[in-house]
Design a binder for these strands. Structure first.
Lengths: 153, 153
DNA sequence: TATTGTTATACTCTATAACTATA
DNA sequence: TATAGTTATAGAGTATAACAATA
């Protein structure tokens, strides 16, 4: 019996209920982008999570761990582990906040800033793959729409 | 010393490098939508994953487990666990594929279709929160852009 | 009393490899 | 030889509760 080679469901199911659900599309697009991003960062010993922490610290925003947890939508206890790792590698430091000694601001070291710059270049290059089908205007439009969902609460 | 109440970093960091990175926005938007979706499905004993499987099965697409794995970007072994759960609750059945006895098509039972319809209503209602800031046209535009990223490979 | 960072723990999810039955 | 499904397992990620220091 001549087997019909199984066609990829991607195209075949494009019109399905699920294939048009915003949350499903968001989940799958995120999976694609996350895989590309983690692959790009692997050589630098970073992942999407640790890169996010390092990036905010390297911009001089002096985030407290609490602020990082809120912005990255992670539990504060997870931030501890991420900062522990980055601090152990000499990429960031915990600085006491003079105004509130409970808080610790996370600041990047010079080496942390250098690694972050290299990582950002890797990420931007790697993003050419998942976003290759979108021109600059479409990417800006997508970013604008996503911001309204990402900060909807 | 009068403490400046810590402002939410959401607005303060909107112009940061990370805050304009498509992959970060995708990750955070996905986290917001996933939390809303899972909360909506909890009462029906479903999560985003199991709802996705049930939804495709309930549409009569007769997916094989391999196709589900590809479409949902999950490992085939994870599909086993999801289908086991749904089958144990009488919501789907594994049907032998007459043309290839290695494959098993996942089809929804009558009860599975009823639960799926109820779940879809819950999901659509719950999505009014994360997507409240977008009108119908913007949602369609977002879906169109996301599809091109989600199926970029 | 409430909040920040921290530790500990249990739970879920993910990734990998091997096995079986079919092709 | 290759593929669909399955099992097992280790690792990563997540959620929760409790604690010390500080507000």
């Amino acid at each position: 019996m001549p087997r019909t080679p199984a066609p990829s469901p991607d195209a075949a199911w494009a019109g399905s209920d699920l294939g048009n659900d915003l949350s499903f599309l968001l989940a799958r697009a995120n999976a694609v982008a996350l895989a590309a991003g983690n692959a790009a960062l692997r050589g630098l010993g970073l992942k999407a999570r640790s890169y996010s922490v390092l990036s905010i610290a390297a911009e001089g925003l002096r985030p407290t761990q609490r602020e990082l947890a809120e912005y990255l939508r992670l539990d504060p206890s997870q931030i501890v582990a991420l900062v522990d790792d980055l601090e152990g590698r000499g990429l960031v430091e915990r600085r006491a906040d003079a105004r509130d000694r409970r808080s610790k601001a996370v600041v990047a070291t010079a080496e942390g800033k250098r690694l972050c710059a290299a990582a950002r270049a890797e990420v931007l290059a790697a993003e050419e793959r998942p976003y290759a089908g979108l021109d600059a205007e479409e990417r800006a439009r997508l970013a604008e729409l996503l911001k309204r969902v990402a900060f909807a609460d």
